[in-house]
Structure formats: structure tokens, C-alpha cells
């Protein structure tokens, strides 16, 4: 798998809570993202998705988090040991980032044009004509009408969808190899959400970038991603092609899929996952989903059980009983 664009191996991220207390946010993240792949990353709040993204853009330190062990290889560089000047070459240039909240993404005190110029310049100083041309081009790529006017505006003058389009324009300014989109449609209404997703898909096609799309909305991810990685309690528990989601081999993925809202008849009862997700950092031994799993057996409660097992060519799961529970049932 050496030719993957991104490769997470046993990544472990801790947060400094106090001088001596550490909280483990991500315990075991292992998966690869191929060139040009649209990878969905899904999990509940607190499963470590956002921190995983931050490890790709080198801003863990801002939240007093750090990589405890493991590796993140991006395009041949191990980001764990990346220096400041390494980051300057990588983030913004090779890795674009679309922030979580569209509403707070753009800087409120400088114009959209200035922000695009920053993204286009990336520290160097290009002449104004080039920057202007490129800005317009980028805004057209993200389908913003009247780009000339938008360049002079401030973020408060734009709608949520427009703001997020601008953030996408900033992210693709350098034709990055990878775009990290951390729940890019939070706070946007459903139609705008769909538009943004279509736009992301198009950008992937036109620029041939890989995209890591983080979400807690399984349906959304399922409809546009190639592969899906499921995270639970700080660990990757399953990786599968999105069309395989109905044949998931981890009870958690199944439970997520079954609790989709569109399955429910009007006035029907919503299916939920029983119990609460384990508290961040206070994870039990054995399978971390065991408490909430319908198929739990004694052997699920021992060891670490975070290793991903290869079930099929493109399908990996952390459930040690996937054989008996899912494949067995089919037979």
C-alpha cells in the first residue's frame, strides 16, 4: 500500500488536559486514502474524527493535542515529524482544508478578496493582476455568481452556502492533492448541503484530488463517497466501499445504518443505538462497542481488539465475530 496518498497507521492522539493529565482522543486510526479517492469518515461526536483531520493540517497543537504514537504518511512525508517549514510546504499547498462551520470559517474583518489572495499567495507575493484573475477563476469554479462583487464583500454579507463555497475556493487555490472537509455542511439547510456535496464531487473530478469528507450523517456520506471509514470511540472500526454498507461487518456500522431516519415510517418509532457511547478516554477493555452490541459474547470483552481484520479485498472490520455474526447468518 505504499502508493497511497495518505496512510494512517495506529495513530494515537492525546490531549493535554492539565500538566500531568492526558486524555486519549484517538487511540487507533488505521486506514489509507488513495489518489483521487473520495473517502468518507463517519462516527459519533467524540469518536476522534476532528482530531484526525487536525493531524493532517498540523493544528493539533492549538488544541494542546499531540500525536502520541503511530504515523501519518502523506505523499511520502511522515507528518508526525514535520517541521514548521515542512508544514508550510504541505498545508494550504498540498492539503486544502474546508472548516467545520461555514458560518465561522471566513475571517469576519477582512474582505473575501483578501482571503482568497492569501490562499493564492501562500506567503509569497504575486502581482495583483494574477491574483485577481485567479480569484475570479476560483469563485467561478465554486459556482459563485457575480464574483467581482463578492470579492469586495465581507463574510457577513454572504449566505451560509456562499461562505462555504468561498472556503472551498480557498481550499482549492493551490490545486491540492488532498482536501480535508470537516463536516462541511454543518449548519446549512438540506438543499444547500446537497449543492455543496455535488460541488465537492465535481471538484474531485476536475482537479483529481482526494477528499476526506468527515460527517456524522451516514446517508450523506454513503451517497457520494467511494469508501467509508467508520470510527467509534477513538478507533477505526470498519472500512468498506460505500455500496457495501448494507453488508457491513461491524455491529456498530449496522446499528448506524439501521438508525437512519428515512427508514422510519411517519409517526413510527425511531431506531436508536442503545446505551451511551463510552466516555472519551475512559474506554473499556475488549471491544469498545461491546456494551451496546446485540451480539456480545465473553470473548468480546478481553484484549484490545482494535486491529482491523481483512474480510474482503476492500473490506476491513474490527469485529472479531464478523464471521459468525454476519457471514454466518447469511449462509
Amino acid at each position: 500500500m505504499s502508493n497511497s496518498l495518505v496512510s494512517f497507521k495506529q495513530l494515537r492522539i492525546d490531549v493535554k488536559v492539565t500538566r500531568s493529565r492526558r486524555l486519549r482522543i484517538v487511540d487507533s486510526a488505521t486506514f489509507d486514502v488513495e489518489h483521487g479517492q473520495l473517502m468518507g469518515l463517519i462516527g459519533e461526536s467524540g469518536s476522534g474524527k476532528t482530531m484526525l483531520c487536525r493531524s493532517l493540517i498540523g493544528t493539533l497543537g492549538r488544541r494542546s493535542a499531540y500525536i502520541e504514537s503511530g504515523s501519518v504518511i502523506f505523499d511520502g512525508t511522515n507528518l508526525v515529524n514535520a517541521t514548521k517549514s515542512d508544514w508550510r510546504e504541505i498545508r494550504g499547498k498540498k492539503i486544502g482544508y474546508i472548516p467545520q462551520s461555514a458560518l465561522a470559517g471566513p475571517n469576519p474583518v477582512i474582505t473575501i478578496g483578501d482571503q482568497l489572495a492569501e490562499a493564492i499567495n501562500q506567503g509569497q507575493k504575486l502581482d495583483r493582476e494574477t491574483v485577481h484573475k485567479r480569484s475570479i477563476e476560483l469563485l467561478e469554479m465554486v459556482q459563485i455568481r457575480r464574483p467581482e462583487i463578492v470579492l469586495k464583500q465581507y463574510s457577513y454579507q454572504l449566505s451560509g452556502g456562499m461562505k462555504q463555497r468561498v472556503m472551498i475556493a480557498c481550499a482549492i487555490a493551490q490545486n491540492p492533492k488532498l482536501i480535508v472537509a470537516d463536516e462541511p455542511t454543518t449548519g446549512l439547510d438540506v438543499t444547500v448541503q446537497a449543492e455543496i456535496m455535488v460541488l465537492l464531487k465535481e471538484i474531485r473530478k476536475n482537479l483529481n484530488t482526494s477528499i476526506i469528507l468527515v460527517s456524522h450523517d451516514l446517508q450523506l456520506i454513503n451517497s457520494i463517497c467511494d469508501d467509508v471509514v467508520v470510527m467509534h470511540a477513538g478507533a477505526t472500526v470498519e472500512k468498506l466501499p460505500s455500496e457495501e454498507i448494507i453488508n457491513a461487518l461491524h455491529p456498530y456500522t449496522h446499528a448506524l445504518y439501521n438508525s437512519r431516519i428515512d427508514l422510519v415510517e411517519p409517526r413510527g418509532k425511531l431506531v436508536t443505538i442503545k446505551g451511551q457511547p463510552p466516555t472519551v478516554g475512559a474506554w473499556p477493555t475488549g471491544c469498545r462497542f461491546a456494551d451496546r452490541c446485540d451480539f456480545v459474547q465473553d470473548k468480546c470483552l478481553f484484549g484490545t481488539q482494535m486491529e482491523l481484520l481483512k474480510a474482503d479485498t476492500n473490506h476491513e472490520t474490527a469485529c472479531i465475530r464478523y464471521d459468525e455474526v454476519f457471514l454466518g447468518a447469511k449462509k
Partner: peptide, 21 residues
């Protein structure tokens, strides 16, 4: 704030970052 993060990623220079972000 989230926009501070986007500023870091855009490689905004130190002085400009301090004043405008």
C-alpha cells in the same frame, strides 16, 4: 475561532496574522 485555523493553513505571515486574525 475557526477562521484563525483557516488563516494558519493559508500560511498568512506572522505580522499580518497577528493584526488581521
Amino acid at each position: 475561532e475557526e477562521f484563525v485555523e483557516t488563516g494558519i493553513i493559508r500560511g498568512v505571515g506572522r505580522t499580518r496574522f497577528f493584526f488581521y486574525y
